[in-house]
Design a protein around this nucleic acid. Sequence first.
RNA 1: GGUCUCAUGGCCGAGCGGCUAGGCACCGGUCUGCAAAACCGUCUACAGCAGUUCGAAUCUGCUUGAGACCUCCA
Length: 488
Amino acid sequence: MSVTSRNLQLYNSLSGKKEKFEPLHENNVGMYVCGPTLYSEPHMGNMRTFINFDLIYRYLLHLGFNVKYVRNITDAGHITNSAGHEEDSIGKAARLEQMQSLEIVYKYNVKFQELQRIYNLLPPSIEPTATGHIQEQIEIIEQILNNGYGYAVNGSVYFDTKKYMQDFNYGILSGRKVDELENETRNLNAQDEKRFFADFALWKKANPDDMQIWRSPWGNGNPGWHIECTAMSTKYLGKHFDIHGGGMDLKFPHHEDEIAQSCGSFGCNPAKYWMHANMLNVNGQKMSKSFGNYFLPKEIIEGTTNLFKKAYPANVLRFFMMQAHYRSTLDFTETALDAAEKGFSRLTDGLNLIEKLNTAENSSFDVQSIVSSFYEAMNDDFNAPILIANLFDAVKQINLINDGNATINKADKDLLETEMKSFVFNVLGLEIASSNNDSKLKPVMELVLDLRQQARTNKDWTTSDKIRDGLAAAGIVVKDGKEGTTWS
RNA sequence: GGUCUCAUGGCCGAGCGGCUAGGCACCGGUCUGCAAAACCGUCUACAGCAGUUCGAAUCUGCUUGAGACCUCCA
C-alpha cells in the first residue's frame, strides 16, 4: 500500500504510551525479537508471541516498509540459578534425553521450523544462533569492561550495576528501582561473587560437567543470559535500531539488562520502540512449563491434548489468537475455540463468495470507508480484533449483495476483494484450506451425489437420507443449498 | 513481602469521557421433502461503593477478586 496510508501508531513499552511510528531510516525498519530457547519444543504460549510478531512483521511489510526481521535462537546454555545450582537448561535437557547439547538443540529446531510452517509464520530475515556468535559476545563484554561497567572475578564477569547507575538509568524499561529491589531480595548467597545483588553475569566460569564450554579472555566458560541478544541485534541491526520485541515476561530482567549492556558498551539504548506481547493463559493462569498447564502447538491441531476434546486446524487457532489484541492476555477455552472455528468459517465463506458476486451500477454502501477501516484498525497499534470486526462488516455486506438486498459496482467489488484478501491472507496470515481437492475422491463424490439427487427427484427419501447419513458417518458433510448440493 | 496490571452481557473478546465493536451461543424468521448448513433479525453488559463532570465502562479514591514480575520463562 502507498506511503500515504502509513499513519502507524504503536505502543512503546519504554514510554508507556502509543507513539507515532517513525523509522530511524525512512523506508527501512530493523526489528529484533527474542526467539525460543530450544531445550524443548516450544509450547502454545511461545507460539502466540511469535505469531503476534509475525502479524506485526506482516503489517509493516504490507505498508511497504523494507523490514529486516531478526529473531534469534538460543542454543547456548542459560545458567538458571545464580545462587547455587549451576545447571544450564540446555545441558539439563540433554542429560535427561541422553543427547549431546547441539543434538538436542538441532532436534527442537527442526520441530520449531516445522511449527512455523504449520502456523504460517513468515521466516525472519535471519535466525542467528547464540553459539554462532560467541566471539561477538566476548567482544561486547570486553567493551563493557573497558568502559568500567563490569568486573571479572574468578573466571566470571559481572555487570557492575552500581557503577552503571551513576551514568544511566537502570530500570528505565521495567520501572524498577534498585533500592526497592534490594529490600525484596531474598537471602543472598554468602559465597556470591557479585559485588552487588543487582549485578548480573556476563560470562560464567565453566563447571566441570558443563556440556558447552568456550574459551574466553577470562578462561573457559559460557556467556551470561542476556548478552547473546545484545551481540546479535548489534551485529545484524546496528547499535540502535527500530523495534525490539519479545514476551512480556522478558521485560525484566532480560530486556532491562540488554539495555544496560548496550548503554554500557555503546552508550545507547538499542531500540527506539520496545514492544511486548502478552501471555497466553489456560485456566486463568499463564501457560508455563512450571505450572504444567501447557500444551504443544502440534498437539492441539492433532487433538492429542487432554485439555480439549477435539482437534483445531492451525488457521483456526491463528484466527482465534488474532481476535485478541497482542497486548492483552488471552484465555484458551474450548467454547472460545469452537466459537472461533465457526466465526472463521463465516469469514472464509464470505471471502469465497465475493468473486461470484454480481455487480451493479452503484454500490449501496461505502466500500471505501470499509477498506479504510481496515487500515485504521491496524494503524492503531496493530489492532487485529478491530480489523476482524471490520472484515465481518464487509462479510455482512457481501451476504446482503448475494441475497439481492444490497448492490456493489465493479470498481468497488475489485477494491473490496483485493483489500479483504490482502488483509486476511497477507496481514493476518490466515490460509483457507481447500479440502475437496482430492483428485480421486472428487469424481466419486460427484457420482454419489448424483445418485442421491436422483433419489431426491423421485422423492425416495429413504435412499437419499441413507446416502447422506452414510457420508456423515464417513466424516463428509452434505449441504443442500439453493444452487445444488455441496460437500466438505 | 515489594512493584505492576487487569476486572466488560451465557462464553471469547474490542473500546478507554458523549456516537454504547465483532464473533459464538440463545431466541425469532427466510430457505428446505426432512434435516443440516447458509443468510437475515433480536438480545444493551461494563466487580462493588463513593467522587470529578452537563455527561463515565472509560478519570480519581477506597473495597473486593484475579493475574504477572521480582528465579529460567514468549
